[in-house]
Write a protein that binds this DNA or RNA. Structure first.
Lengths: 302, 302
DNA sequence: CAGCATGATAATTTTATCCTATCGATAATT
DNA sequence: AATTATCGATAGGATAAAATTATCATGCTG
């Protein structure tokens, strides 16, 4: 089988037209180079050079193969450059999953920041439920994902990005009684609207409010926060709204949004990745940036 | 140093995403493949694959390098094809030297024959004096040459292509006495015109006619047969004309051309090449074709 | 003819590569 | 929770590839 070593030797031989000098150029003894060239010729089944006393002459076939061989050697050398280049922080493609109750609020802030600070980064965003995020990260379809912690899959590593407090949103009318701040027990479970199954926020909302068992829940599942809050603003019920969504949703819907009493319930948003992904630098940089973006989003909001 | 073997293994690994199956695909044990991939990663300084429980995932960098690596492997495979293709008879480039007293008469017949029978052949013709032919063949600037034999360089091999008889040409007027056939002794040395120094035909003419010493030679050297024969046709003298030139030159100049008496003097035209050029098939085929072309040229001529 | 240069060859050592067997870790099953 | 299966990594020893040094044969050169 043809080897790169043989090609390098042949390249040197074609350059020097002299076995001895080609050997010196390749830091190898002349017999070694000679043997490799011979093997190369045997392998290709053709004569590459004509050995003469006054050095070496390339055969027509050797001459014909030379440019191709040099191109191959150049490509191989180029691999090293590419490899080195691709080792930078947050360069190339990054496939990032984000859960639907975070994505629409975080992305408009996060993406411009990424573009500015890491212009060589090509982000591929996917909005997926927690389970989807975790599965895809595990199987290498995503490089990492932003989900609510904790997750139950200890084959993945994670870090906290920010705390996202819950608030209560209701229509801005007189029919709804809202205490401010309010306790979990004051939530009217009959009027509590939830996202559809699969959203972690649904479970979190139940966990927050369902501490007292036996209360019923409005039998409806909204497909997105936007839908949910639109329903709320039309007086169809109340819901938990994560702080990250407040600024954005308040510009769309007239709502009353009140905090919980201390200790305020919240969800912890984090980044998950495969422990062996080997992109620790990337993950750290991304985490720092997301934290910064979230801080920006949450500032001056109640 | 990166090797093709490593690239092939990596290619298989990227295809199967499984060390075991990649090993089977490359007919090697799994540890062997594993080791090569590891070495490749160490050499490139990057992680190519992520080892996981459910097989293997390419890292972003591995993914980035893969197309380039596959292209390289394809190029290498292509080398074999090119080599095989270039091994045909009379294919590719053939650099052929021809002495000036043969070239203009042989070429118009030879080249069309070559083009017809060996369409893949790309002939590079050079008209050179014998010394030039021999030097260039020796130094690999020509693949072979057509010269008059014998040559005095035994570092080259040669074979006879055809015998080229000499005839005597004179102006077609009453002032010149020509016997037919004539003997060498009857040549009027004072009127004998010759090519300039360097042409083997000049020396051969002298050898034919100069057997009787002391005769003087017209002090003039024509630069080509065409010039020489034009001078002859204008009554400036007589000259030896090789049979190969007769048909062509007779159409250009009115001349009387008579043969020598038996045994007719002649020159032997042959092919020379480097013994190690390794293109024996080419040389044989070319020799056969030239012989055929010459036979065609010499037929029905006196 | 002697001396020089060139590439090939020989004998040996070093380095690569491979294989078998086994391990450790994870995932799936019982 | 223990068992089994799968997967890639590791260890040890054998084999093959490639290197080195020393030498040779040959053809030029003076």
């Amino acid at each position: 089988m043809l080897t790169l070593r043989q090609m390098r030797y042949f390249d040197a031989l074609a350059t020097t037209l002299h076995f001895g000098r080609a050997a010196k150029m390749t830091n190898v003894s002349q017999p070694a180079l000679s043997a490799q060239i011979m093997e190369m010729e045997a392998d290709l089944g053709i004569r590459l050079v004509e050995r003469g006393r006054a050095g070496v002459i390339l055969t027509q076939q050797g001459e014909a193969l030379l440019p191709e061989i040099r191109a191959i050697l150049l490509s191989v050398d180029g691999l090293y450059d590419r490899a080195r280049q691709s080792a930078g922080v947050l360069e190339g493609r990054l496939r990032l999953g984000i859960i639907p109750t975070v994505a629409p609020y975080l992305v408009p802030t996060l993406i411009p920041m990424l573009r500015t600070r890491y212009p060589k980064l090509d982000v591929e965003l996917r909005e997926l439920l927690t389970t989807g995020c975790i599965e895809d990260v595990k199987h290498g379809k995503l490089d990492c994902a932003i989900i609510a912690l904790p997750h139950n899959d200890d084959s993945l590593r994670s870090c906290t990005l920010f705390e996202d407090r819950f608030l209560i949103a209701s229509a801005d009318d007189e029919n709804t009684v809202l205490y401010s701040p309010m306790t979990e027990a004051q939530v009217d479970m009959d009027r509590l609207l939830l996202l559809e199954e699969g959203h972690c926020l649904r479970d979190q909302a139940l966990a927050v409010c369902g501490s007292t068992a036996g209360r019923r829940v409005a039998n409806y599942g909204a497909t997105s926060m936007a839908t949910l809050l639109q329903m709320v603003s039309h007086g169809m019920g109340i819901t938990l709204i994560p702080e990250i969504a407040v600024r954005d949703e308040r510009t769309r819907n007239r709502m009353r949004i009140v905090p919980f009493a201390e200790p305020q319930p919240s969800r912890r948003i984090g980044l998950v990745w495969r422990p062996r992904s080997g992109r620790n630098n990337d993950q750290e940089a991304l985490a720092a940036l997301v934290t910064e973006a979230a801080a920006q989003l949450l500032s001056k909001d109640a």
